[in-house]
Design a binder for these strands. Structure first.
Lengths: 216, 216
DNA sequence: TAACGAACCGGACCGAGGTCCGTTTAATGT
DNA sequence: ACATTAAACGGACCTCGGTCCGGTTCGTTA
């Protein structure tokens, strides 16, 4: 196991119930990366993206990516830790945009709107984003043990908890935020839209309703 | 892929929004199994259980089980389909007891109590059961694509949807039931209790609160 | 009881994720 | 320019889940 660079948001795991200040990760990619490392990283991401476009996210093997990038297999793992890390890196751009939007973008997603409206907005935004990148998000799904340690998800959950705390101060926001996260999880969205054929509108209505009930 | 016997509850996938009549699977195990097959099945389950007890669920490999049962590796897969199937079979007994309890047991879990109370009860029961078998349940976690097709979960979700329909007829019970399922999912329970150290009481209180909000 | 076919058995085999470690190379200091 | 060293490289190697298929066994029918 290795000390490969932190991908998305913050790294250390604050104790569960802590207020947990929200902050993005480094503004750019890896802080300082050796020239060859940076070059290979770029090559790998490009190769991976191409393979995803060609064969779908599911059919992308680590070895194939390595070969396509003219790089050793070990290098892939050194850089991205594991398969999930590589796929996650592919989603990094979109993820950062999303984070910026709900952390400091214009209302109702960003600060300025009342918390309940922000809750609605963040659900909509996530649903929209997910239906686009569903394949990749699904393939990037981390193993059950790490699912809740993924920085991006910790950040989002913290955000939901914050909004909930503002909207319903007398509730257990931590637990409720987990409930809301469940509704927005890529696997569920995939199941409902792709496997069950529900239209996006119904999921959005469901989110509205859920937010109403939870904050009501 | 194979036609290995249906493990827990019903098999065919009814269209999403259907009323979905609830029914258990066969009262006993596989309907009719050849003598040697039944013998090997028993051996395998026994061996698997022993290995779980010794090395924990995570450290149980299919080959090890096969060896411990004096059986070929292919036989394990023929019988149980895949690793998840084997682990799931280990949970079968407990699962059936749970199903029987909420389908036809005494109130408030079984029929007879008002739906909201039954909702509360099923949550309590599941939380209790999960904290016991957490390791196994975690190891038996199916791959994301199949998570919602697992018969036992389909059955439970259908049950929740039914109770919700009775308790809040004007809501989208299907969607809400998924939300409730999320709160009760083994991975979340594991994360909250084991990784975050929340006491079971808090999870129970959270379930109470969630049911109130959702049905309120 | 002999014969037959379906179901079952077993272990060689494969693919893919992940690790290891000897070698190479980029940055830094002299 | 050269030495030094930490970092990066690469591919052989390992593990483990899952498949395949030739041989075997059970249960049935004649």
């Amino acid at each position: 196991m290795s000390a490969f660079p932190p991908p998305l948001a913050e790294q250390p795991q604050p104790p569960f119930d802590e207020p947990q200040l929200l902050q993005l990760g480094a503004p750019e990619d890896e802080p300082c990366l050796r020239a060859d490392a940076a070059r290979n990283r770029a090559r790998l991401l490009e190769a991976a993206a191409r393979l995803v476009a060609e064969h779908g996210a599911a059919g992308v093997t680590m070895e194939a990516v390595a070969v396509a990038a003219n790089v050793g297999k070990g290098t892939v793992f050194r850089r991205f830790g594991d398969r999930t890390g590589l796929l996650t890196a592919l989603l990094d751009h979109s993820e950062r945009k999303f984070q910026a939007a709900f952390l400091s973008g214009p209302p109702p997603l960003g600060p300025g709107a009342p918390p309940v409206e922000r809750l609605r907005a963040v659900g909509y935004a996530l649903l929209r984003r997910s239906v686009d990148e569903l394949d990749l998000q699904l393939a990037a799904e981390p193993s059950p043990e790490r699912r809740f340690s993924v920085p991006a998800r910790r950040l989002l959950r913290g955000h939901l908890a914050l909004l909930l705390r503002q909207a319903v101060p007398d509730a257990d926001s931590e637990l409720l935020s987990h409930t809301l996260m469940g509704y927005l999880s890529p696997v569920l969205i995939h199941h409902l839209t792709r496997q069950c054929g529900l239209p996006l509108e119904r999921l959005e209505a469901g989110w509205d309703d859920l937010v109403d009930r939870v904050t009501g």
